[in-house]
Design a protein around this nucleic acid. Structure first.
Length: 555
DNA sequence: TCGAGGTGATTTGATGCGCG
DNA sequence: CGCGCATCAAATCACCTCGA
């Protein structure tokens, strides 16, 4: 057999990407996604070439025909990424996805089928479908949690179909377990989504969403569907919207969203509808109960008093139908972050706080926000283990940003760098960044350690390696979206921008200089930040100064 | 030259059936 | 119950044309 190299075409890359996102796809599913007009044989032949020639990007296995037919799938070979295929994604500096689990092949194929159905629907209606895999949207109750609280089967985002993008977590109920008890898998799932709703806006995997997605449960058997609906009503404590349907029905109708096969539970109502289309206006409107908390950045010139509710509405999406809000619909902005912002120390007048902080080279212990224990510990450790010098200003600056964010009502979180990540930097003989700050749901490394210009390329390479390590070891939260740099000298800033501009970046960088930072009364909001979003090419980006939180539109 | 696409031949694997 | 054989469908392969 000839083993000629296979040149990857754009369609091949699309197939590999789908396999990375969905883990496995059947021959029929790949054909429907990428060869919708062609025969099965043509698709199979290309996959065979990707599998057996050159680099051998794919592998396959057989799921018994009766098993596939029993769940309504077209029988055929099942494909997944080979180690070469996974390595290709690592080479592209993108996560390689997860390994297939042959014992759960049918479950995973049904998840893929939902993606394929939505793709076909999007294609027919000139809409767009985005998909985030389970490893991208899994939820950990706290940064130090050992295990994920909740692992949805995937997140689909349909844009162009409804006025607001339609975002749906998928839960495929493939088990035979009863739903009744809170300790059952379904009971834990429902409680898990309740917890997710309280923190979703901090999750990097849910960036770009304006509201908490609905939860779509697909199950088998009518009685099971009834039990599932009852379980949702029984266990649900928060305003999570659910849509329930039978796998068989959803996968048989031509348009799964427009067909009246869904039992809908709106976010703010304790009722289960009769079978209706998912594109039900009232149910869709109920999703707006879980809007992303507004940043209110432009109102922060005033002290952090509770803003009137109208201010919050004015900065959110334009005029969504306002459902009747129950007390637990959404945390009130003033309560963000979850723990109430502490009162400033009596020695510091509230009006003087920002100015004082920015003029203080080393943060006095009494001004460190006591509730931010991680950062407090970090600063305290640094101050106690070595003399406070320039190396500690990074932590001080982090604390300043943290305090400003709390003062203006932006949700913040701090997580020290995980030990394996710290070891990576140590191994590369580079000072590690202190940790990861999450501002308004966007996580970022805070880094202030550019002592020498020569170390810049190594440092950028270290972040690339860290991105792989982060994915491989499944650190929480997901890999921070941005890396914030405060560059000590103008010449180092210039060198950094030149280096980063010339590189194909996988990390989003936002950088400023020490001078600009210290001279700004409110660095968080000032236009002192140069944003260098990740991109696959070396195309230069504008280095015009922007506010730090402009990142939401930059990448 | 290489890949896409079409067609038909061959191989492979699952299944059913009969026989000892 | 185990074995061999027949049958069928799916998978695979070979060879072709066409077009970029």
């Amino acid at each position: 057999m000839t083993k000629n190299a296979v040149q990857l075409q754009s369609r091949d890359i699309a197939v590999l990407t789908d396999l990375r996102n969905l883990t496995i796809l059947s021959l029929d599913q790949i054909r429907r996604l990428h060869w919708p007009e062609a025969s099965r044989e043509i698709c199979r032949k290309r996959l065979s070439r990707l599998m057996n020639h050159g680099e051998r990007w794919l592998r396959n296995f057989t799921v018994p025909k009766p098993e596939m037919e029993a769940v309504g799938l077209q029988p055929g070979q099942v494909y997944y990424l080979s180690e070469t295929g996974r390595a290709w994604f690592r080479g592209q500096e993108r996560p390689p996805g997860k390994l297939p689990r042959q014992r759960q092949a049918l479950h995973d194929l049904l998840i893929s089928e939902w993606f394929v159905r939505l793709s076909e629907l999007a294609r027919a209606r000139q809409a767009n479908l985005g998909w985030r895999a389970d490893w991208q949207v899994r939820f950990y109750r706290s940064p130090n949690a050992e295990r994920a609280t909740l692992v949805p089967d995937g997140l689909a985002i349909l844009t162009g179909l409804t006025p607001q993008p339609l975002a749906m977590f998928l839960e495929l109920d493939f088990s035979r377990e009863a739903h009744g008890r809170p300790s059952s898998r379904i009971g834990r799932k429902i409680r898990g989504y309740d917890a997710y709703l309280k923190q979703w806006f901090k999750h990097a995997g849910l960036d770009g969403l304006d509201y908490f997605p609905a939860v779509i449960f697909l199950t088998h058997g009518r009685q099971r569907l009834e039990n599932l609906a009852a379980a949702v009503l029984k266990h649900r404590r928060e305003n999570v919207a659910y849509g329930l349907a039978l796998t068989g029905q959803v996968y048989q109708v031509a348009d799964p969203l427009a067909a009246p096969v869904w039992r809908l539970i709106p976010a703010h109502r304790h009722t289960v509808s009769e079978p209706r289309p998912m594109l039900d206006s009232r149910w869709l409107a109920s999703l707006q109960a879980n809007l992303r908390p507004p940043l209110r950045l432009l109102q922060v010139a005033k002290p952090p008093e509770t803003p009137p509710p109208s201010v919050q509405a004015a900065t959110s999406a334009p005029a969504p139908p306002q459902p009747a809000k129950s007390p637990r619909a959404m945390p009130a902005p003033v309560n963000l972050p979850a723990t109430p912002a502490p009162k400033p120390p009596a020695t510091v007048a509230p009006s003087a706080r920002p100015k004082l902080l920015c003029q203080t080279p080393i943060l006095p212990a009494e001004v460190v926000i006591p509730t931010r224990r991680g950062l407090l510990a970090n600063v305290a450790h640094r101050l106690s283990t070595r003399r406070a010098g320039t190396r500690d200003t990074g932590c001080v600056w982090s604390n300043q940003l943290l305090q400003q964010a709390v003062a203006v009502g932006i949700p913040v979180q701090w997580q020290p760098l995980p030990p394996p990540a710290r070891e990576l930097f140590n191994r590369l003989k580079l000072p590690p960044p202190p940790g990861c700050l999450t501002l308004a749901g966007v996580s970022l490394f805070t880094d202030h350690h550019f002592a020498r210009i020569e170390s810049l390329p190594h440092r950028l390479a270290a972040y690339r390696e860290l991105a792989f390590l982060w994915t491989e070891q499944q650190f929480r939260p997901s890999f921070p979206r941005w890396t914030m740099l405060i560059l000590p000298e103008p010449k180092q800033a210039k060198a950094f921008f030149e280096t980063a501009q010339q590189q194909r970046r996988i990390i989003n960088f936002c950088a400023t200089t020490q001078v600009e930072f210290t001279q700004s009364s409110l660095p968080l909001l000032s236009t002192i930040w140069r944003l260098l979003p990740a991109q696959q090419t070396c195309k230069p980006v504008s280095l015009e100064g922007r506010p730090l939180l402009a990142w939401s539109t930059a990448a």
